[in-house]
Design a binder for these strands. Structure first.
Lengths: 342, 342
DNA sequence: GATCATTGTCGAAGCGCTTCGATGAAATCG
DNA sequence: CGATTTCATCGAAGCGCTTCGACAATGATC
């Protein structure tokens, strides 16, 4: 393990010159810089992480709290953790994983000991203990997800209400006026994971405002059949369907509708919205308004790094505009009347 | 941020006394210890992580490399990462997440800069680049999974060959002599993820040695139907089935067999072996020889910590003995002849 | 009562880096 | 050409902790 002193020796300059040459924080003559770089390369010099942390008072570590609930969608969870890590690396930060029962203690610990420069909070509930804790820590923190009380917090998330509105608008544009929503399991709603509630709210409001007949169902199994039956009972003329639910439920929707003699997209047009999974492997790919982990995480990490390095406090809540991916699962119910322009 | 000097002041003792009182590395009189502890509590003292790292030359951080492949089972992946983290916390270590393209560079970096005290390698391929790299690093490393060439490496994993043998033995005990295996997707095998190969090997060998008729199928879809059909084509009298495959394939096995007029467990007894998922939510729960993330990870982390703290090099490869969980999906084909003892 | 351990505490030397202020040399200016 | 600014480099002071060696004070030993 070569130290900076070894490099200084090898290059025939002082320690501070090596530091400045490698960091670029002060001007150094090209010839000296070259000597230093050559020496560093020759010795395979890598600055000692903790020495650097201590001296610079910056760990270049971001803690990520990702608790695992019984109903956690592991795949989505993983995606977010990975995306945070990738984004962090682009800023030369590493990520510390804080799980589970250790979430609160871990946040506390990594902040109090200066282990982490900042914290990313994943899988946020409406009433999340971590929100209260976050207000007491002077450490920069960004939530990916939105708790009910965002006072004093910095949050980033997909605009789920806008996503619900966009889904309804697309179905209305296609002439659909009997629109159902399959939401998440009751279990998830009860835990008050917040985004399904925001989606529900956006759906209800926009459906009412636009005078469409709507119904909402909550799956009870890991498939769509029960929810589809419930929807059809309430809305026999169902011709539009929005899915803000889990992958297994969404995957079986086409089959469930078929059992009732309904085909996709002609009889019922379907949009998956605010979901992390991709539908292109489904028996029939569905139009999707994705909950894009990469988008949320990179925005969140950018913000966090800015807070850490520049001491800025960004706007309290940043909502990410929904995007639409077309797979052909929405078609006009009156194709001959309203010709598709564009 | 109170420092150790503040605590020393408050308690009226020297800095080194505080350090020894809190670490217990030298004997300190009870009265002094109490004073120090009171002062530390009063000031909310937490040792500064990087200062401690630098002075003690130990980061108390374990790096975890968990690359994400196209065919990665996110759920299993997450489980392992979480379990490593949990086990690490029990030894007072935190875990750094190294993903993806960053796996090799990250191992390199965290070792060279002393960012991590040790490394856990997950999701190991037969010919894994990380194995070669590991041999060049002086940093303690434990593989969870077994590459083809284990020379100089420390590896921990479920004994997949023994798991295959155990599955066959149980089916033989139940009088089953036409035993099929549904393995993983070709894609997974081609990537040379190593454990399916070891399972296959154990299965073939033990089936041959015990004179049972056997057949092996590789699923092509995310369901079992094609594989079951292939198995029945080769082995029309199929009466035992071993599943070393993905959750979606295993979940649909009962239905796939039913389409051929075969019931579980009477016509065909089924065992899921070497799998991370639980089958108790399946339409019909299956006997399971689990690939227990907790078991593997806690053994691996214990070893790694021992290597870090005591400098010991444990045995090259540690195979974890399989266990059997009974859900009633295996019954005797000749119940009246071989009464169930016990 | 002198000798030898033992125990509890302290001071100081780092750990390897960053960064501030100082300094001499070279360049710029009136 | 002396005064002033700019540039490149260096020395030294930390960052907050651990740990080694020293050293009184106390207790045990004969």
């Amino acid at each position: 393990m070569a130290t900076i002193a070894d490099v200084a020796n090898e290059a025939g300059v002082s320690i501070s010159t090596v530091s400045y040459a490698l960091s670029g924080k002060r001007s150094i003559s090209p010839s000296t810089r070259d000597k230093v770089e050559a020496a560093a390369t020759k010795l395979g010099y890598r600055p000692h992480a903790s020495a650097r942390m201590l001296a610079a008072n910056r760990s270049h570590i971001i803690a990520v709290t990702a608790p695992l609930h019984a109903d956690t969608d592991h795949s989505a969870h993983m995606q977010f953790a990975m995306e945070v890590t990738q984004s962090a690396r682009e800023h030369d930060y590493d990520t510390l994983l804080l799980v589970h029962n250790d979430a609160l203690e871990g946040m506390q610990r990594s902040a109090a000991t200066s282990l982490a420069d900042g914290i990313i909070v994943l899988d946020v509930d409406a009433h999340d203990d971590r929100a209260a804790l976050a207000r007491t820590l002077k450490c920069p923190i960004v939530f990916i997800g939105i708790p009910e009380d965002t006072d004093g917090l910095v949050c980033v998330d997909l605009d789920f209400e806008a996503a619900a509105e966009l889904a309804i608008d697309r179905l209305i544009d296609a002439g659909r006026t009997n629109i159902g929503l399959i939401s998440h399991h009751q279990e998830t709603l009860e835990r008050e994971s917040n985004f399904p509630l925001r989606f529900l709210h956006g759906f209800r409001k926009h459906a009412t405002e636009n005078g469409v007949d709507s119904a909402i169902a909550y799956p009870t199994e890991h498939r769509a059949h029960e929810a589809v039956a419930a929807l059809l009972a309430e809305l026999p003329d169902l011709d539009g369907l929005v899915l803000n639910t889990s992958a297994d439920v969404a995957a079986s929707v086409t089959a469930a509708l078929a059992e009732h003699g309904k085909s996709v997209p002609v009889d019922v047009s379907v949009i998956a919205a605010g979901v992390t999974f991709s539908t292109h492997r489904f028996p029939l790919a569905l139009d999707t308004i994705p909950l894009d982990a990469h988008a949320s995480c990179s925005v969140a990490v950018d913000m966090l790094v800015e807070m850490v390095e520049d001491g800025l406090k960004p706007p309290a809540t940043t909502l990410i505009a929904p995007t639409y991916i077309n797979f052909g699962s929405v078609t006009s119910s009156t194709a001959s009347v309203i010709p598709q322009v564009n």
